[in-house]
Design a protein around this nucleic acid. Sequence first.
DNA 1: CAGAAACTCAACCACCCGGTTGACCTTAAC
DNA 2: GTTAAGGTCAACCGGGTGGTTGAGTTTCTG
Lengths: 104, 104
Amino acid sequence: MFRALAHPARRQMLRTLAREPTSISDLARPHRMSLAAAAKHVHVLESAGLVRLTLSGRTRMCRIDAEPLSEAYEWIRTYERLWSRRLDALEALFANDDDEEEDS
Amino acid sequence: MFRALAHPARRQMLRTLAREPTSISDLARPHRMSLAAAAKHVHVLESAGLVRLTLSGRTRMCRIDAEPLSEAYEWIRTYERLWSRRLDALEALFANDDDEEEDS
DNA sequence: CAGAAACTCAACCACCCGGTTGACCTTAAC
DNA sequence: GTTAAGGTCAACCGGGTGGTTGAGTTTCTG
């Protein structure tokens, strides 16, 4: 999950996809890389569950599925309290478990 | 930033540090890795600005500085609407704006 | 039908990442 | 004053990542 977000190109693709579904080649165009490279990025996003691919003719349509981000969102939100409301955070963090992840 | 969060060991260290400042060897202890390896993780967190190190005697005290997470937090938050809308019953009410699903 | 577009797939490559070990230094403890 | 603890540092290593190219397949377009 966090790994899928680590690469700037992937984040930019998600930004594009947040606006509208886009084909792989359209996602690739703004980046200075081969189509094959961009396709790899898309498939990384796909296997992170962030993007859903549907085949229509010769083009793969990508649409975002941001739901898996909620995990990361909640994780980070816990620590936001740490700096915005330092005291509240302490109780919250003791209750929090995030140790069952296999992602990297 | 996202990269620093990508490794589970690093996230667990942050969880520990959220409770209280901790030395590098205490951070290392729960993990099955050498001290040198754990120290590397700590320094990754440090150079991401998430951890501040202070030398006291022979031990390095690590304390969390969660503020840099706000960047990641804000980034993810922009996508919150995408998934929270899916989870809500509100989705039906907004069904007319930009996206319409062409049944895969 | 010919040719281009949109991909996939496999091979290859350079670099980074996460880990190790061993030598070393400084500080604490007895 | 030894010895142990806490770390650093450099060297090394295997596997993953991010990129390339080239060839092949399928589908669209003129």
